[in-house]
Computed example of a mutant assay.
Amino acid sequence: MHANSWPGGCCCTRLRYRLKAEPMVVHCCHCTQCQRMTGSGFVVNGVIETSNVEIETGSLKPFRLPSETGRPLIVYRCADCGTDICTDYGARETMIFLRMTTLDDPKRFGPDVHIFTRSKLPWVSLPPQVPAYEGFYPAFEEVWTSEALQRRRALGF
């Protein structure tokens, strides 16, 4: 176990994982695709290197879904119970969008930004202190810290 690590898992508890680093950024996405994919009003995704997510028990099953951008969209779910764990947008393989509410302590990482608020459900209120964009933010530098940008660049993005 790492000194700074955060455990998580699925509903049936057969899949257990551990984050070995904090996410680079945490998005609260209100797009209709995330709403439909998760069956919720929004999804809270932590963008993190796949190398910083350690699967301890169980396994993930990939599901290829159609995407609004036309780029590959692969959702990984617990192979046993189907809990939505993470998504690889664009089949990048080195960076995933982890469902932060699958952490054992989902309060640990709140959203850094709200995105695609143009399709936010009308009964969802956004906190004024968190940046919000109608679509995706225009520049990574507006939202990501310099350390997070360095980590992203190290992945080739």
Rank of each mutant, 00 (worst) to 15 (best):
V53C: 04
T87Y: 00
H30L: 09
D105V: 02
R99P: 05
I85N: 00
E56L: 13
E147L: 05
R77G: 02
I48N: 03
G46N: 02
T102A: 06
L103V: 00
C11T: 12
N52T: 03
D88H: 03
A3G: 11
A132Q: 15
W144F: 11
Y89K: 05
V130W: 08
K61P: 00
V113R: 07
L121A: 08
V130M: 09
R152F: 14
D84G: 10
R153G: 06
L73P: 05
T50Y: 02
F63D: 03
L19I: 09
L65E: 09
C31Q: 07
R118S: 15
C11K: 11
P128Y: 09
A139P: 05
G90E: 08
K107V: 09
L103F: 03
V53R: 04
V47H: 03
P127L: 15
G90T: 10
P106L: 04
M100S: 03
A21C: 06
S67V: 01
T69S: 15
R153T: 14
F63K: 12
A91W: 03
M24K: 04
G46Q: 02
R152G: 01
V143P: 03
T13N: 10
P138I: 10
E68C: 06
R36W: 12
L98R: 02
G41R: 12
M95W: 10
S125F: 14
P122S: 14
S146P: 03
E141G: 02
R153I: 13
D105K: 04
L19T: 07
F116A: 06
P111T: 01
Q33K: 01
V113T: 08
G39V: 06
